[in-house]
């Protein structure tokens, strides 16, 4: 579904990504782990070009996202994104947060979009919050709404940028549960995370990044049990 070919990204002289090549298949859950500063968030943000890649190519079902003439807005509609800090729209209630993009971009009728939103809210267990404002919600609730908002566009892929890193520990579980359910339903997902247990349990493929490279790539269970590369061994010995 997604092909990444020798992706590079630098800020001035500072090289963040030094040639990333990988693929994400349909229905696959790819988890990306690695120390901070390894470039994993930058990698994820390049996938929908929130960061502009310096070199390399990204294909979404054979359409080059990295092309100059690519219709980015249309491509982004197919790639939902969930951020570490949620970024809900604070001036709108939950319902409007979820329905704004489908109504404006997919030309859904308002009531149509709202019934889709209610369905999604049920799926994330927050149907009673539809008329609340983001400031009235806990972090875990905000993140679940953010997931619902991204899903409302019916994307083909979901990108998660450290979705639980700014949550209080007791709220991490509720967000991971929603993500797990999504994975079970067959959603294609790329997840940057520090939740090793989750990566191991839900991931189909694991990428270990360090210093702008994918150092190791494989089935999560294999990598966790028998990390091949010394840097993976070192990292895992610290976090597990």
């Amino acid at each position: 579904m997604i092909k990444v070919l020798s992706l590079c990204k630098s800020y001035g002289k500072n090289e963040i990504l030094k040639g990333i090549t990988t693929t994400v298949s349909k229905g696959e859950v790819v988890v990306v782990i690695g120390p901070s500063g390894s470039g994993k968030s930058t990698f994820l943000r390049c996938l929908n070009r929130l960061e502009e890649p310096t070199k390399g190519q990204i294909l979404l079902e054979n359409v080059a996202i990295t092309d100059k003439g690519a219709n980015l807005d249309l491509l982004r509609q197919r790639m939902g994104m969930v951020f570490q800090h949620f970024h809900l729209f604070p001036h709108m209630n939950v319902m409007d947060n979820i329905t704004l993009a489908p109504v404006k971009l997919k030309k859904y009728k308002k009531d149509e979009a709202q019934s889709i939103a209610m369905e999604l809210l049920r799926a994330v267990g927050l149907e009673d919050k539809h008329d609340q404002f983001p400031s009235q919600l806990s972090g875990g609730q905000k993140q679940r709404i953010a997931i619902a908002r991204a899903l409302a566009m019916k994307p083909d892929v979901m990108l998660f940028d450290e979705p639980t890193s700014s949550l209080d520990p007791e709220m991490v579980g509720e967000v991971l549960d929603v993500m797990k359910k999504l994975a079970q339903d067959g959603m294609t997902m790329v997840i940057v995370t520090h939740e090793m247990g989750f990566a191991r349990e839900v991931g189909d493929k694991l990428l270990f990044m360090d210093g702008g490279h994918i150092v190791e790539e494989g089935a999560p269970k294999t990598v966790f049990q028998n990390p091949a590369h010394p840097r993976t061994q070192d990292f895992l010995s610290k976090v597990l």
Partner: peptide, 25 residues
């Protein structure tokens, strides 16, 4: 900046994001 990014990640154009998300706030 995250507000603009969230709006763009949903597929909104820069103009739409400004009008519906950034300017009202």
């Amino acid at each position: 900046k995250g507000q603009m990014e969230a709006a763009r990640s949903l597929g909104m154009t820069r103009g739409m994001a400004l009008r519906h998300i950034v300017l009202p706030q």
